Simulated scan of single mutants.
Amino acid sequence: MNIIQRNFFRLIRSGAFNTTEHIEPMSVYKWERLMQLTIMHQVVPYVYEGLQRCKNQFFLKQTDYQWREWLKLKQDAERMINDDEGDEFLRADHLTNPLLNRQLQNILDDEHSDTISRKLLLLILRIVRHILNEGMPVSQLVELGRFLQNEGEHVDKDVFRKWISKLKLSQMCQLEGEFLVLLFGFKKDDVFFLEDKQNKHIEEIAQELIDFTNTRSQDWYFSQDSDSIFVHNSNTTAMFSHVKRSARYFRYYPSESLTNFFASFVHSLSHIEE
């Protein structure tokens, strides 16, 4: 990771998980880039809290204007929290594979199952949806980490493991757990579903997801000009990148990855005017 991304994750760790972090010196321009990264990944409140915790460090230099901008961004983010419904396609309470989705709905409809365990399952699935379609789900990973810290001990672990086995989610859970360790400093014992095996390519995967997010994955959607009957793709390179990514993550969730790609393709057609 470059210095901007390293400081970005340090500030998130400090703000969201109360860790002690040491910020590397950056130019005003790089701090502006970090601000853009923060907005893009929708983690303004966490980064702002991290800035407050680290503001007395010698290398954390912000101009008065930048501090005012950070405060404004934080206030705006707090106001928008309840207004942002997100993309309906990324809902965590459904899967694109019909068989897996039936299993999921049976789990969610079971009124006797543990509410906290179901909430954890939905957090896991929300991240899966973003990994397959949007890139690195930083804000969702932060939510997962905070949930495990605050509610992890109340999860029915045996039942949860049965669920992820039914939904073929074991490898995706492992990937998400390794992201928590790599990006947010979690220990293996903090993530009960994390197994001993370690993916030697985890840093490469994380960087790829971050870079893909930064290209704005929506660019591969199809659209139609208002004065034309022809349909076109807004970014052909982004589309082929999406195809390659779908192939790459096939190994982590083969039963969902293929159907997800075709479902996202159909979803992209909704951007075309009737």
Score class of each variant (00 low, 15 high):
Q66H: 10
Q66S: 12
W67V: 09
W67I: 08
W67T: 07
R68I: 08
W70V: 07
W70G: 06
L71T: 14
K72R: 12
L73E: 11
K74F: 15
Q75R: 13
D76G: 10
R79D: 10
R79E: 13
E85L: 15
E85M: 13
E85S: 13
E85K: 12
G86D: 08
G86N: 14
D87F: 07
F89S: 04
F89H: 03
L90W: 02
R91Q: 14
H94N: 11
T96E: 13
N97I: 00
N97H: 05
N97T: 02
P98R: 04
L99D: 13
L100E: 01
L100W: 06
R102A: 15
Q105H: 05
Q105A: 01
D110K: 12
S113I: 03
T115P: 08
T115G: 05
T115V: 12
I116G: 05
L120S: 07
L121N: 03
I124H: 07
L125K: 03
R126W: 10
V128A: 14
H130T: 09
I131E: 04
I131T: 08
L132D: 04
M136D: 01
V138M: 06
S139G: 10
Q140L: 15
L141Q: 06
V142K: 01
E143A: 14
E143D: 12
L144G: 03
G145C: 05
L148I: 06
Q149Y: 05
Q149H: 13
Q149L: 15
N150Y: 09
G152E: 05
G152T: 05
G152K: 02
E153W: 09
D156K: 13
K157I: 09
V159I: 10
F160T: 02
F160K: 01
K162I: 15
K162D: 13
W163Q: 07
I164V: 15
I164S: 04
S165V: 12
S165G: 09
L167T: 00
L169E: 01
S170R: 12
S170P: 07
Q171V: 07
C173D: 05
Q174S: 00
Q174Y: 04
G177M: 04
G177K: 00
L180D: 04
V181K: 02
V181R: 01
L182F: 06
L182H: 08
F184V: 04
G185P: 00
F186I: 02
K188T: 14
K188Q: 15
D189H: 14
D189I: 07
D189G: 07
D189F: 11
V191F: 05
F192D: 01
F192R: 03
F193V: 07
L194M: 02
E195L: 14
D196T: 12
D196V: 10
K197C: 09
Q198L: 10
Q198V: 13
N199L: 11
N199A: 08
K200Q: 09
I202T: 03
I202H: 04
